[in-house]
Simulated assay, not measured.
Amino acid sequence: MVEARYKIVFEGEPMPGVALETVKENLARLFKSDSRKIDSLFSGRSVALKRDLDEAEADKYLAALQRAGAMVRKEQDRSNSPLEAKDEPAPMMAPQTPAMIDSMRCPKCGHEQPRAAECQACGIIIDKYLARQAQLATEAAAAQASITSATAGSSPYAPTRAQVGEVLPEYGELKVLSTEGRIGRVRYLGWSMALILAFLPVGAVIAASFALSSTLASLLAIVACIVLAVVGVFIGVQRLHDIGWSGWLWLVNFVPFVGSVFALIMLVVPGTSGPNRYGPPPPPNSLAVKVLACLVLLAPIVIGILSAIAIPAYQDYVSRAQLTGETRYEQPADTAIAPQSDSASE
C-alpha cells in the first residue's frame, strides 16, 4: 500500500491579526530568499510551497509556516500519481530544511527565537495572541458591516457628517467686565438696573463729601461717572453681540435723535437662537435677573403714578401758599383812624 503524500499550499493571505509586512519578513527569513521572490507569493494564486511530504513532515511545515503568520493548508499531493497528474506551478523557491524552519519571529514584538509557545522577549503566549488578534479582526469586521448596513439606505450624495471646527459649549460664560460674550434682553435690563442700584449709595457718599470738600466730591463724581460709563459700554456691547451685530455700533447712541431710537432697538430686538460668530448663547436667566428686569419695566409706571399724585398736591400747596401770602400783606379798607388828643391839636 502506497503511503499518502502531502503538500503545503499558500494563497498569499496572512493569518488574522498579523501584519502583511511581518509575514513577508518571516517568510524571507525562513526561505533565505529576497523580497522580490517573496512578493511573488502574494499574487493571489495558490502556490505549493513544499511537495511530496509524509503526514508528519507536512504537519511540521504547516505549524512552522502558520507561526510565521502565513495562512497555509495541507493537501494531499496527487501530482506524482500517473492517473491524477496535473500541471501545477512549481514552488517559487526551495524552502529550507525543517531544522531551519524551527526558528520563528514573534508576531507582536518581532523577536526572532527558536520555535516555542511563548515569546522570550515580550512573554506573550503566541497561540493565544494570534487567537485574540483574529477575534478582534472579526469584531471589527462585524462592526464595520453593521455601520455599512445602517447607512445603506442613505443617499450616496448626502454630505459627510464629520465634525468640522471647534466644539462650542452649550452656553457661554457670563463676564460683566468684558466685551466678549453675549447677554439677552432680560439680562441686559437686569444688569442695567443692578448698575443703577449700585450707583445709588455711591451718589449718597458723593453728596455727603460735599460737606468736607467740594474738590473731593467732584473727583469722586468724575470717577463714578467713568466707571458707570465703562460698565454700561461692556453690557451694551454684549447685548449687540447677542443680536449678531458688531460692538462698535454702540457708538450710534451718541448720534442725536438716532441714538434714542437705537437704544430702544437694543431693548426690543431678540438675540440669535443658537451660536453666532460671537460665541454660544447666554445661559438661562436667573430669578434675580428677572426681578431686576421687572423693576426696570415697573419703574416708569411707579414714577407715573407718583407723579400723578404728587404734582396736583404740589400745585395745591403752591396755590394755598400764595393765598396765605396775599392775605398777610393786604391792608383792610375800613381801618379806623385813631382820634388825636387835645394836647396834640394845641
Results as ranks from 00 to 15, higher is better:
65 L>V: 01
84 E>K: 04
107 P>W: 04
122 C>L: 01
225 C>V: 09
280 P>Q: 10
28 A>I: 15
28 A>D: 09
144 Q>A: 14
57 E>R: 03
319 S>R: 13
52 D>G: 06
182 R>K: 06
297 L>F: 00
74 K>H: 03
124 I>C: 06
46 S>W: 06
286 S>T: 07
263 A>K: 15
97 T>D: 14
12 G>P: 01
25 E>I: 07
189 L>C: 03
65 L>W: 03
208 A>Y: 06
113 Q>D: 12
118 E>V: 15
332 P>W: 07
175 K>H: 05
176 V>G: 04
292 L>R: 05
23 V>C: 14
312 P>Y: 02
341 S>F: 12
307 S>Q: 11
169 P>W: 00
201 P>A: 08
344 A>D: 08
119 C>A: 12
25 E>A: 06
126 I>K: 06
289 V>P: 01
165 G>I: 08
111 H>E: 12
81 S>G: 14
233 V>M: 13
208 A>M: 03
111 H>C: 07
79 S>E: 12
111 H>P: 07
173 E>W: 01
171 Y>R: 12
247 G>I: 15
139 E>P: 05
78 R>D: 08
104 M>Y: 03
222 I>K: 03
346 E>R: 13
304 G>F: 11
324 T>I: 08
52 D>K: 15
124 I>H: 06
101 I>V: 10
312 P>A: 15
107 P>M: 14
162 A>P: 01
215 T>Y: 05
106 C>Q: 00
290 K>M: 14
38 I>E: 00
84 E>H: 02
1 M>K: 09
336 A>H: 09
206 I>C: 02
156 P>D: 01
218 S>R: 14
113 Q>A: 04
151 T>N: 14
58 A>W: 00
232 G>N: 09
209 S>H: 14
307 S>C: 04
271 G>C: 04
93 M>I: 11
28 A>T: 09
135 Q>D: 12
72 V>Y: 00
254 F>W: 04
326 E>Q: 03
53 L>H: 04
63 A>Y: 03
65 L>A: 12
192 S>L: 07
167 V>K: 13
4 A>S: 02
32 K>I: 07
54 D>M: 04
129 Y>F: 14
44 G>L: 15
342 D>E: 05
262 F>T: 00
247 G>P: 02
124 I>L: 05
259 G>K: 11
158 A>R: 07
162 A>H: 09
258 V>P: 08
212 L>R: 04
29 R>E: 15
201 P>C: 04
126 I>E: 13
185 R>P: 05
81 S>P: 05
119 C>H: 01
208 A>F: 15
268 V>H: 15
179 T>D: 07
177 L>I: 11
73 R>D: 02
308 A>M: 02
155 S>W: 07
129 Y>M: 14
19 A>M: 13
241 H>W: 11
170 E>S: 05
118 E>F: 11
102 D>F: 03
101 I>M: 12
273 S>T: 01
266 M>F: 10
156 P>H: 01
99 A>G: 10
307 S>D: 13
341 S>C: 01
56 A>N: 01
8 I>K: 00
10 F>T: 12
121 A>C: 13
260 S>E: 14
139 E>I: 12
199 F>L: 10
304 G>A: 09
288 A>T: 11
164 V>I: 15
292 L>T: 14
276 N>Q: 06
254 F>S: 09
162 A>R: 09
63 A>S: 02
337 I>W: 13
305 I>P: 00
51 R>M: 00
212 L>D: 08
311 I>K: 02
293 A>W: 00
309 I>G: 06
316 D>T: 09
249 L>M: 08
187 R>T: 04
